[in-house]
Nucleic acid binder design. Structure first.
Lengths: 196, 196
DNA sequence: TAAAAAAAACATAATAGTCGGTATGTTTAA
DNA sequence: TTAAACATACCGACTATTATGTTTTTTTTA
């Protein structure tokens, strides 16, 4: 792996563990085995690094996951379940085999959303991406005559998305209940409601 | 107002605006019109201050809101709608008339949850408190023969809570859609599902 | 009830340490 | 020979905190 990627990956791991502001450039340097000069050759600032890291390891991953599930063969219900569990579930760091706890990732994301306009923009874009995905799945299900047509699919998609996103936050608040259980239970109820 | 309360209120405002770590003691001192000695007379450290502020201005407020809505006369549906809108909606700083944007409050809360075990504990407790409230409302509705009985009320309450909490996060992600609209739409769908 | 003592409520000054960032030097590859 | 890819040394600004001094209020005592 080249130096820049190494810096980004090690920083990402540190950010997840301690949060952005609580990781100093010294720590980043040590973890990446590089000196100050080396770091500033690749990045203009610590902030630039954070934005790059979040774009690469979070949003790229999120959006490519949605893309994959779009091509995924399965029932609409399976697709809905899979997309969110893929994102939330056992995220994996590229190349290495380390698993990431989504909860810490979410907290890092919130930190970025608060501090940087560009991350906030990416965040919004991702949710529109997810919303469109859910709506397409619903439209597909309606075409297959599985899903009710009396409610506008965008509104239904919004309802479903809200519930799925809530699952994440509840997982942070009440971690003792496994995410899979909560997700399965929620999707089952949603499914009862949206199917004919 | 006494000095300690003044420090806490001014700090809370600063924390909401910039986040905890980005507010220095110097800023707190200036805003509260106090010196270093004065500050450290009332608080052991900056961290102690944050915990005190979050306990007082967030969790006290949250939990007392739930208590109020418990006594609130109204239909189960109104109660559900009111409790979350009261918490999320136009929160108000004690004494002063300044309105708080819940989104910034949520981000501050996440910062605290990440950094301090005690805040994380309060956070979990609050969500159990909310869950119990929702379940009681549902049980009440079932007793009035409004709400279906074929699903366990705890599971139904969990489903509803997840959706409500998701509403908050969606509001952060997609702020252009007003929280009231989203909440009303979601509650209507939930209601269709849980009523007989 | 006035003086004395004690405690509370601050104010001032200083400190050690860390922070992100810069300027410049050196090595390596094209 | 030139530019990329680093390394070294350094810096001023700022950080939370401490130690100590001063003022104000409360309590105790004569």
């Amino acid at each position: 792996m080249d130096t820049k990627s190494r810096i980004m990956e090690e920083s990402f791991k540190l950010f997840l563990k301690k949060g952005f502001v609580d990781v100093s450039l010294n720590e980043i340097r040590k973890a990446s085995n590089i000196t100050t000069g080396g770091f500033y050759y690749h990045f203009d600032s610590k902030d630039t690094l954070l934005v790059a890291v979040i774009e690469k390891y979070i949003f790229n991953y999120f959006n490519s996951t949605i893309r994959q599930i779009r091509d995924f063969e399965g029932t609409p219900k399976e697709k809905l379940k899979t997309v969110i569990l893929s994102i939330i579930g056992e995220t994996q760091l590229s190349e290495s085999s380390e698993k990431i706890d989504y909860r810490t990732l979410h907290l890092l994301l919130m930190e970025g959303v608060k501090k940087y306009e560009i991350i906030s923009k990416h965040y919004t874009e991702f949710y529109y991406n997810l919303l469109n995905f859910i709506r397409d799945v619903l439209d597909d299900g309606a075409a297959q005559d599985i899903i009710r047509r009396d409610i506008d699919s965008t509104e239904l998609a919004t309802f479903i998305q809200t519930s799925m996103v809530g699952t994440v936050l509840m997982w942070i608040a009440m971690p003792e209940m496994p995410i899979e259980n909560r997700m399965n239970s929620n999707i089952d109820h949603l499914w009862n409601y949206i199917t004919k």
